[in-house]
Design a protein around this nucleic acid. Structure first.
Lengths: 230, 230
DNA sequence: AAGTTCATTTCGAGA
DNA sequence: TCTCGAAGTGAACTT
């Protein structure tokens, strides 16, 4: 990673043509040859950039450029699309290189996991009087997201998805079939919970006697915040 | 703009929860309080970030943190959504600040203008034997993008859009109506040229006897490059 | 101001 | 490998 702060102008030609007038900017040159041109504002999106794979070359300066005050010119070319980015540098204000190594990468706590956590905490959303038995209840063919008991004491298996499609209903159906063979659990009813339930999935679920539960992630999160605060 | 290269771990809590394990990264702190966490790879999207408006605070370190080797901890909080980003720093490898001033901003050369230029140069795309009369041919209600003549010497008015919708067809229709009143031009036929023509627009155009011409921007640009090279 | 569409989108999952 | 949908999308344009 090389970081250059410079007074520069930038020209891009690719899907569109774009030009950045002369100004001080931060140029981030990554090891894969890619380059980002950042200003002191805006969002995380650079003013201009070149995505990898691409190659970096130093251009020869002609008379016009040197007399205009350009001290260095870079050309970054994309290896597949022939997109081109030219950085004309008038003054380098800072230049440093850093060996960062390979990044271990971002760990995202999936929304599904979070939904499961939230619904476990707010299990009454599945029905008045419902109580939590346990999350990730193991069955021979995999874990059921949530096992609960309804007001009458009957078992309830809940499958949680962010987007509820046919697949999720089939999955829950398999769990229910298996769990209903267990005399300690049976009869087990099913709840298919998701932020969004596709019409086909809803039809299939209801046809099989599985209840559908639409989850409002933001509302559940807001509820959680209140529980934490007080 | 402050640039810090540091051995750090990052935690984000907002719409989702995310964690970046300890590693060397570049932290870009913009003047508006926003922060970008970049690694030496990936695209222009940072591993993690906080968009403005947000505020930056230095956290007090507790025993657990100091014994874990953390020398500094930052908390960046969004001013509206209460999203939170915490950067735990184990070692600062580089730290510099730069006054960049306000950026004049990106100037995008519209694709439509470029398409007009390209089609004017490759006017035979509009039909074999077509010749260019002029670009931006003025009429009392505005300029027609391209005026050409077909192989038989008849006038052809071409309207160019990046995405061809109903609006563009209506616009061209008005031009054609007007131009057909001019005995020096009449009869004038219309060509609706665009990178993408919506079905409704195509139907309307063809119903009015206007030809539709799908433009392949990349191919036209490639052709232009060849013309320039040889 | 609120909604819609586009993006040099980027990114990930599923087929 | 390719296609399709989501994104902590952001940004520009319409209504």
């Amino acid at each position: 990673m090389r970081i250059v702060v410079a007074d520069c102008s930038v020209d891009y030609a690719g899907r569109l043509s774009a030009h950045l007038p002369r100004a001080k900017r931060v140029l981030m040159l990554k090891n894969d040859g890619s380059i980002l041109v950042h200003s002191d504002g805006g969002s995380y999106k650079p003013l201009n950039w070149m995505s990898p794979p691409c190659s970096h070359a130093q251009l020869e300066l002609d008379e016009t450029q040197t007399s205009a005050g350009i001290v260095e010119a870079w050309q970054v070319t994309h290896k597949k699309t022939a997109d081109k980015l030219i950085v004309s540098i008038f003054e380098i204000l800072h230049d440093s290189a850093h060996d960062l190594g390979v990044d271990p990468g971002l760990i995202k706590d999936g929304v599904e996991a979070h939904l499961q956590e939230l619904l476990a905490d707010q299990i009454e959303l599945a029905g008045a009087g419902h109580t939590l038995v346990r999350r990730e209840y193991m069955t021979p063919i995999g874990p059921v997201d949530i096992l609960a008991k309804d007001a009458a004491g009957g078992s309830v298996a809940i499958e949680i998805k962010r987007r509820g499609g046919i697949d999720g209903v089939e999955q829950l159906t398999r769990y229910l079939e298996l769990m209903n063979r267990d005399p300690k659990l049976a009869p087990v009813t099913g709840v298919f919970a998701a932020q969004e339930i596709k019409p086909q999935a809803r039809t299939l679920a209801e046809d099989r006697g599985i209840r559908c539960l639409l989850l409002d992630y933001d509302a559940m999160r807001g509820m959680e915040d209140q529980n934490t605060l007080f």
